[in-house]
C-alpha cells in the first residue's frame, strides 16, 4: 500500500484509534478520580469524531445517528452523572492502584501485543477501509478490563466498565461500519440503566461499609 491508496479519511481514523489507545493507557495510569472521568469523556469525544469520519467517508447515514448518540450519552450525560455522583458521595480522593503503575503498564503492553496479533488474521479478512483499527479496539477492551482488575474503589471500576463498552463500540464502527440501530439503542439504554443501578449500589455500599473500597465486599463470602 502506498499513501495514495490509503485515503486521508482512513489515516485520520487510524490516528483517532491511536489516540483512543493513548487515552486507555492514560486511564490505566491515572490516580485521580476526577481526571479519570475527564479522560473517559475525552474517549467518548474521540469515538464521536471517529464515527463521524466513518459516516462521512462511507456515506452510511445511520452512523450519524449513532455519532449523535455517542456525543449525548458518553461525552455529556455519563460524565455529568459521574461528576454528580462523586460530589454526592464526596469521594474526590486519590485512586489507589493494586500493583504499581509501571508494572500495570507493562502488563498493558503485553496485552496490546496479544490483541494486535489476535486481530491480525481477522483484519486481513475484513474489507473495510479501517480494518487495522480492530486490534486497537480489542486492546482498548482488554486494557479497560485490566483497569477494572487493578482498581479497588468502586467508581473507577465502573469507569473501566464503561470504557470497555467504548472499545466494543469502536470495534463495531471500525470493523463493520456500526451495528444495526436497534442494537445500538439497546446497548445505549443498557449502559444508562446499568449506570443508574450502579449509582444506587454505590450509596448502598457506602451506607454499609462507610467506604467505597470494594475489598469490603470480600467479607460477604460464606465462611
Amino acid at each position: 500500500m502506498t499513501p495514495a491508496t490509503v485515503s486521508i479519511g482512513a489515516q485520520f481514523i487510524n490516528l483517532l484509534a491511536a489516540v483512543l489507545l493513548l487515552l486507555s493507557f492514560a486511564m490505566l495510569s491515572q490516580r485521580r478520580i476526577l481526571s479519570l472521568i475527564d479522560l473517559f469523556a475525552m474517549q467518548g469525544a474521540v469515538l464521536f469524531v471517529s464515527t463521524l469520519v466513518v459516516a462521512f467517508t462511507t456515506g452510511q447515514v445511520h452512523l450519524y445517528y449513532s455519532a449523535t448518540l455517542t456525543l449525548v450519552l458518553k461525552v455529556l450525560l455519563l460524565p455529568w452523572i459521574l461528576h454528580r455522583l462523586i460530589r454526592r458521595l464526596n469521594v474526590k480522593w486519590d485512586v489507589e492502584t493494586l500493583i504499581n503503575i509501571p508494572t500495570t503498564m507493562l502488563v498493558g503492553i503485553v496485552l496490546v501485543i496479544f490483541a494486535f496479533n489476535l486481530a491480525l488474521p481477522i483484519s486481513e479478512l475484513a474489507g473495510t477501509i479501517t480494518r487495522s483499527t480492530l486490534g486497537i479496539a480489542l486492546a482498548t477492551v482488554m486494557l479497560s478490563f485490566l483497569m477494572m482488575i487493578t482498581r479497588r474503589k468502586a467508581v473507577p471500576q465502573v469507569i473501566g466498565f464503561l470504557a470497555m463498552e467504548n472499545g466494543l463500540f469502536f470495534a463495531a464502527t471500525s470493523a463493520t461500519y456500526g451495528m444495526p440501530m436497534v442494537v445500538e439503542l439497546g446497548i445505549a439504554l443498557d449502559v444508562l440503566v446499568g449506570m443508574i443501578i450502579l449509582g444506587v449500589f454505590f450509596f448502598q455500599i457506602r451506607e454499609q461499609f462507610d467506604s467505597l473500597d470494594i475489598r469490603h465486599l470480600e467479607q460477604l463470602r460464606e465462611e
Binding site: 500500500m1 502506498t2 499513501p3 490509503v6 489515516q11 487510524n14 484509534a17 491511536a18 489507545l21 493513548l22 493507557f25 495510569s29 503503575i101 509501571p102 503498564m105 507493562l106 498493558g108 503492553i109 496490546v112 501485543i113 494486535f116 486481530a119 487495522s132 483499527t133 486490534g135 486497537i136
Partner: peptide, 21 residues
C-alpha cells in the same frame, strides 16, 4: 516509566497501523 512505555507503544502501533504505509 510512562514516557518509556508510551514510546514502546508507539512502535507497536506502527506495526499495526502503518505497516503498509
Amino acid at each position: 516509566g510512562t514516557a518509556f512505555l508510551l514510546a514502546v507503544l508507539g512502535m507497536l502501533v506502527h506495526f499495526l497501523l502503518e505497516k503498509g504505509i
